[in-house]
Design a protein around this nucleic acid. Sequence first.
DNA 1: TCTTACTAGTTGAACGTTCAATTTGTCTTG
DNA 2: CAAGACAAATTGAACGTTCAACTAGTAAGA
Lengths: 163, 163
Amino acid sequence: MSEVRWLSDEEQAVWRSYLAATTMLREHIERRLQRDAQMPQTYYEVLVALSEAPDMKLRMSELADASRSSRSKLSHAVNRMERSGWISRDDCDVDRRGSWARLTEKGFAVIHAAAPDHVTTVREALFDVLTPEQVRQLGEISAAIAGNLAGECAKVRAEEGTL
Amino acid sequence: MSEVRWLSDEEQAVWRSYLAATTMLREHIERRLQRDAQMPQTYYEVLVALSEAPDMKLRMSELADASRSSRSKLSHAVNRMERSGWISRDDCDVDRRGSWARLTEKGFAVIHAAAPDHVTTVREALFDVLTPEQVRQLGEISAAIAGNLAGECAKVRAEEGTL
DNA sequence: TCTTACTAGTTGAACGTTCAATTTGTCTTG
DNA sequence: CAAGACAAATTGAACGTTCAACTAGTAAGA
């Protein structure tokens, strides 16, 4: 039981600023995407992952990893997008428990229609307000944070099916 | 109708890294808070805002601003925390439409019990993986992003009651 | 004063996410 | 080739959030 290392005044200020910035940015993008393309950011990421995959299809687990979704969340999301006609589910011959999620032509059209607005939002809200130097810095900072948490997240992912 | 300014390879990489880092960090903190204190991060922020207010009470609208909640979201959240006995609602004499949200003794105890674990989580996942220089950089980057979005968010906030 | 416009806050329904099963199929080892 | 362990994916309930009304009180102008 060691003593808690509280935050210094500067750390406190940075943390609050970080929280404000990331929250506002996320909500801003979410609102725009909802307004322009009638989908949450999560669905956008799922569609992007599929559109970049060979034959525009992935096993559910692969898609879950690619889009940082839990299996359950992805299952619900794919249900929803299947009803919208953006994704279809195909049986997997190799493993009959598994199934493929495939981007339909309609889904392909939807993601391509959504992309320009989305990219513009990201550019205007993020890259346009930072200097090139800051962009580089943000890249390194993000890599450090993500690198440290990757293990933890993998562990959580692994415990999913187990307990 | 001008041409879309797509992201360069470097911007693309930074954006994906940023998305991975912020998503993982948020979910990590959320999981810990849920595990250690049985509350989502949003509720934690509401309790902190109240604990820092004079007499540990704020009008609902002030609390909404302080915790970056929509009025609706806050209303639901306070309902929940009132049932838990962490917050109580007091009538407002000055404006009979309004009401005060006040932190109860139990709520005060809850937030003080939750703080050490939470701060430790934040320190380990954020400050411990960055150099002092990077912490400073992150502060400036966050300020730039938040500063730019503040107007937009205020506008959304204002439209809430109107439409 | 009456009327209209506005503001504070709440509510219920719809949505997306989490959590804890559950189903179905594969792998392993005796 | 059984038997149990494990893996892929889905499901329903509970939760928190959003959205669009809605209630009730205040402010302003005629």
